[in-house]
Structures are given as structure tokens and as C-alpha cells.
Amino acid sequence: MVEAAKMAVSDEVAIQITDMNKWYGSFHVLRDINLTVNRGERIVVCGPSGSGKSTLIRCINALEDHQQGQIFVDGTELSSDLKNIDKIRSEVGMCFQHFNLFPHLSILENCTLAPIWVRKTPKKEAEETAMHFLEKVKIPEQADKYPGQLSGGQQQRVAIARSLCMQPRIMLFDEPTSALDPEMIKEVLDTMIALAEEGMTMICVTHEMGFARQVANRVIFMDAGQIVEQNEPEEFFNNPKSERTQLFLSQILGH
């Protein structure tokens, strides 16, 4: 089934990053990043902490700005022009490590807010869409509760549903399972796998190597702000080329 999905990668370019550099003050966080993501591709980004993985995907929906180089998302260049940024952000869904649900709104309101205000969808239609996606992440019965009443895994699935309600063409995941208890990781990963099988273009920063093996077309290893190695998962795990990658893999897979 997953194999079939892997076939679905098209030649159409979804994200193109060329010679991108970013600094925090004088600290050079991202160095000469070049990356092309095709539509339907599923990419896992891994690497030691502080290597710039999160910063990279946060640049893709302009939560962070870059100082050099170009980023094209769906053919639109990210610049400081506000109109572009809001348009891109509504096309690119994002899930955060700490879910970032809106605690003062119910689950349903969390999911319908952006469609109603950004897409100008009628309320009733937005609610139907929201219920559709809540069913997809298997928590329609929680729709009227508030985020504080849900477990971490449920909250992360709501966060995924909230992004999906905007019907995004690309999904970004920033360590979606890192803040979860072990028994809740699986429910979130299952949701992400189901999404991958539908052919969603995904970039995931994660340390779930099992997930990477099962779902990814490509695994990218970053260190010190650079892309050190990228390859297909089988090749990447069984036959890593660079020393730095070998060391990293031995540390996370060694126990």
C-alpha cells in the first residue's frame, strides 16, 4: 500500500529552495540550503538538536525569514511582501511540537476558525468539513470539548485536523511526537501515515526512524545548519555515507 503511494510522486515541483542562508544575529543557522520537493513527496528531516531542522521548515511558511537565497512554494516566491506570505501560509499546513491549539476555543471552533475567516467559507460548510477531518483523525466525539480536556495525542490529532481544514497542498510537521507520552506516539503516527497514503506532500522533522523507513521517499540529515546527506530511506539507514551520519544513526538506533 505504501509502495503504491510512493509511486504517486509527480514531477511537479512543490517547494524549491536555492542557496538559502539564514542568520540569528551573527549566528549562521542555515548555510547554503538547496532542496527541491516534488508534489506528493514525503521527506523526513533528522539531525542532532540545534542543527537547524526546525528553522528550515519554519522558513518554508515564513514563520522565520531568510536573509539570502530564494524559497518558492507552489511557484510563489517568499518575500517580505505580506500578501504573499498570508497566501502561502493558507496553502501550507503546519503542526507544532506543542500542538498550539487555541485553548479558549472548542475543538470544532479551532478547526473552523481559519476556514471561516481566511477562506470566507460559510460557517455551516466549515463545520461539515471540520467534522469530516475530525472523523478522519478519529476524534469526532470530542468536537465540543476544549483542548485542555484532551490528552496530548488527541490534541496533536486535532492540530493535524485543524491544518487539514484549510485544505493545504503541503503539510509541515515540526517534531509532532516529541512532546508525547510513548503510548500516544502511535496514534499520531498512524494519522500521519494515513495522510501520507493519500499522497499529501509532507516534510516532517522527527526522530521516529520507524516512521521514516515506512513512509518517507527521502531522508535528509542535517548538521550545523547544512544538509549533510540525503538519500532514500533504505540506503540512508543501511548504508550511510558520511561519518557524521553514521555517528548520529549509531547513537539513536544503538539501543
Binding site: 497566501k87 501560509r89 501550507v92 481559519a114 484549510m166
Partner: peptide, 13 residues
């Protein structure tokens, strides 16, 4: 938390 601002931004508000 800063995440609230980021979540609002990432949804295109």
C-alpha cells in the same frame, strides 16, 4: 506562549 502567535500565523490569519 509564542506558539499561539505562530499557530495563528501558520493558519494564514
Amino acid at each position: 506562549p509564542r506558539g499561539q502567535y505562530e499557530a495563528a500565523d501558520s493558519l494564514g490569519l
